[in-house]
Design a protein around this nucleic acid. Sequence first.
DNA 1: TCCTCCCTTTTACGCGTGTAAAGAAATGAA
DNA 2: TTCATTTCTTTACACGCGTAAAAGGGAGGA
Lengths: 341, 341
Amino acid sequence: MRKAKIHSMEELSATIGISRPTLSRYFQNPESVRASTARKISDAMETLDYVPNFFATRLNRKATGMLGVVIPHATDLFFASLLEQIEIVAAELGYTVFTQSSHGSPEMESRAIEQLLSMNADGVLVAPLGGQSRLESLDRLRRNLPMVLVDSAIPGLDDVDFVGTDNHQSIKMIGEYLLRTGHAPTFLGMPRLNANAAAREVAYIELMEERGLEPVVIRGQSVGDSWHFEAYAHDVMEEHFAQGRHVSGALLCANDRLAIGALRAATRFGLTGENGLRIAGHDDHPLSRFMTPALTTVAQDIPAIAAAALRLVTDQIKGDAHDLPPRRETFATRLIIRESA
Amino acid sequence: MRKAKIHSMEELSATIGISRPTLSRYFQNPESVRASTARKISDAMETLDYVPNFFATRLNRKATGMLGVVIPHATDLFFASLLEQIEIVAAELGYTVFTQSSHGSPEMESRAIEQLLSMNADGVLVAPLGGQSRLESLDRLRRNLPMVLVDSAIPGLDDVDFVGTDNHQSIKMIGEYLLRTGHAPTFLGMPRLNANAAAREVAYIELMEERGLEPVVIRGQSVGDSWHFEAYAHDVMEEHFAQGRHVSGALLCANDRLAIGALRAATRFGLTGENGLRIAGHDDHPLSRFMTPALTTVAQDIPAIAAAALRLVTDQIKGDAHDLPPRRETFATRLIIRESA
DNA sequence: TCCTCCCTTTTACGCGTGTAAAGAAATGAA
DNA sequence: TTCATTTCTTTACACGCGTAAAAGGGAGGA
């Protein structure tokens, strides 16, 4: 049962009596050799323990078959879900994806970008940290590899393809829903401002002004560069609630993780009952439907975003034309009415 | 501002007038060349756009400096948190980590393992799917690379280092807490049986029998190989509650994601008030404290697990002795009493 | 000024595989 | 059996860099 270990294709060639170039072709595509030969090889492989060296195979190819993905945080289920979709589509296209998480740190993000550059990935999908991202790193990446920004655009880096959600549409949709059902929402923004944070806040303000209403934006102390959205929202809202502010009407949160934190605070203050404070989120976090009350929110079209992102990179890869005008694809969200608002 | 692009070290050598071997040494360790030379190189690099090719650098080295990590699901916050810790520690040790998610599928898990084998990673950390994992794949990996199983052991693959949580301790601790505070818990198990699922159930049964109590285990219809624990638990419990079963006393869930689903079902049936059904989980999921009621649970020591896993692989890597007896490190959990039980 | 020591350059080979070109062998049909 | 065609083998070079050995150069001390 213990198979003999073979370390190189050369060695394999010697032991099974088939020339190395033929083996090379076989491993790239078994059908590129005669059926009888392919059989002979695969039979021999049953007895032997050999895998072509990944590095060596990519070294002398025009394309490495690798796709880099950078996300800000692996522990945010939105990005984890996005990554999952990307990996699935990429696998179908035959790409090996190399994922790097920035862990919320600009240094790590830059390191990740260096990694992908040095690996000569065929293309890169970047969900950037946002405002804290180092522009030079991203710009360098853009100049050297096919690249697509996902989820959040970067002000100042405009000539890059972008795929994300139409924040204007989504905020307007849920905002109008809240208005329609009786309340002008207050807005709870994200602690750190990436492009989405800004865009959603702007969309909210525009909606309110359009209706001749006074926009009210809650912005708490940004505790360091914390990605602990739930805790942030909880603490911010707890302070407000304790002072009797924002205890009724509707609260529109920039994302579900904030909403979950806010919901918790509201519940503790007994604010979420019938005719109580209404809370809405954004993103349709996987756990939102399990909250009490279940969270009303808007769902981003993650599969569509992932598919589009891959379509755009592969276009760049095939076209090899870096001088195309930058494309921008945004997707509409779906309103999900549950109990919280 | 647009830097000239250099494609190889050879080319770099020609343009800045420093020999390639010296450059090679510089990039591996800038202090291995004379200070004046290092300065000369780094000055030149300011103007040029060059990164050593990752594949080429690893090709002719004894160690690749890569660590492979396989997790069952990137969208499970427990594994995402574990991965985060692993990446942080690995980065400190100078390893480049290559993460692959199995997406809950044995085929993907095997593919991931093939990838890591072909990349000749220095070592691999595997959080296996569990019962569905292909033993041949894992066994092949074990024979060829330093490897450590994390989180869940694999029956039939005993001669491998393992790092995880002491399920016996954790279940006993939270079970005794429930008993001490007045209720003999019913147990809600995971739908798919990996080693943890089995171990926790066994621990529960042992605890109950120890006390002379009748163990009651709820096991629902395993809907395919669903990793949607919350939905599974919700549906299973909803059916029970609708029939008036398990509506009081205490429910001990095999993990927090199940508990979240159960909690939701219980709340909808109005079971979670004062003197109502008590629900406890396992793992201290990041959102557990934000549930209503906040979830009582036990916290796994994720940083300790990550650190231990890396210690064990690096030991194997350094020692290069595959014939050490397998080591097994389990960590105790911490009881976290909140509102739900 | 000369010599020693240290760092650098030169030269060369190796890592494991891709790939091209030319000749040899095997296949299939007539 | 013969020929045309496909497929394989042989040979060679390439990818980008690690690394060893020998020779060259510069700085510092006497």
